[in-house]
Amino acid sequence: MIEQLLSNFMSSYQIQILSFIGIFTILAISLDIINGYTGQFSIGHAGFMAVGGYVAAYLTFYHQVPFILATLAGALSAAFFGLLIGIPTLRLRGDYLAIATLGFAEIIRVVLLNLDVVGGARGFAGISNLSNFDTVLIITIISFIVLYNFTRSAYGRALQSIREDEIAAECMGVPTTYFKVLAFVVAAFFAGIAGSLYGHYLMFLHPNDFGLLRSIEILLMIVLGGMGNLWGALLGAIVLSILPESLRNYQGIVYTIAVVYLVGVAISYQKGKQNIARWLAGILIAGLAVGFILIYGKELIIRYAGQMRMIIYSILLILMMIFQPSGLIGLARDLAKPLKERLRGVKA
């Protein structure tokens, strides 16, 4: 329906990118429930996605279960795994939990690699094409609304209290263990939905699609967008779904670098307003450097465009954490604040 409408002025490749934005939005907002809202640290989100994707694909492939039911079953299975992973959270904090989630996801991947009924290391081919842009769009919107409501309820506040101060939360009657497990279960459920959408869209699944890299990719989305804010997760998912595509050719790279430069200017403006002269000198030098690289490094950039993606990702991770831990959405809010105050001043 909407897909047909879009196909009038967009290529099928562009529509595919849009669909992936949807799928990754579901993944990012659900991971944000664990990492951003509850303050736990999961780097195994791809594992839940894999469970959902494989279970749903198994059901539609072998038993011709309708897509919606299969997706629901996949999501529930993923939620069950979320419960399993949630249990160690009774005991683990911070970094130990991170390693445990990574371990769980790796175990799932290794098991799938050895599971012949879903193709094992050859991958699961021949999955019916049961999801398209329309399905993805509708399910993404529903997921966003549902999780948004969740975070704005007493449940969401309880999760945030755990992030802020676990002991104080306990003393205020918040059963922190229950809510931590709940966060994992809810997040895993939605990751499972995303997995089903992914499998039935691509018509192929491979265990190595759900390795640590995928989990990190999802993590990067919420870091870039701003953790603990679903709009931030959405923004992160959009940016990081488009970024690798735009890094495929020189023109795209130029645009990307220009945008990154402008964001950098905005961040440094936010941080260093006190000394305008130094700030101006800084952006001038950085701008000249960027221009120099673009003009004289054209050959190199074109040759290594593919390999530079991960390097750009990792530099982004480090710089965001050091200079802009509240993410793009935090930056937007900070920049908007003086503007808002000025507007309010005019009214008064």
Binding site: F41, M310, S314, I322
Partner: peptide, 20 residues
Amino acid sequence: APRIAALITAIGVSFLLEYG
């Protein structure tokens, strides 16, 4: 900073070394 921030940075450094 919060521990998560440092952990994410560590992941970033790791990837930078690998893909660099």
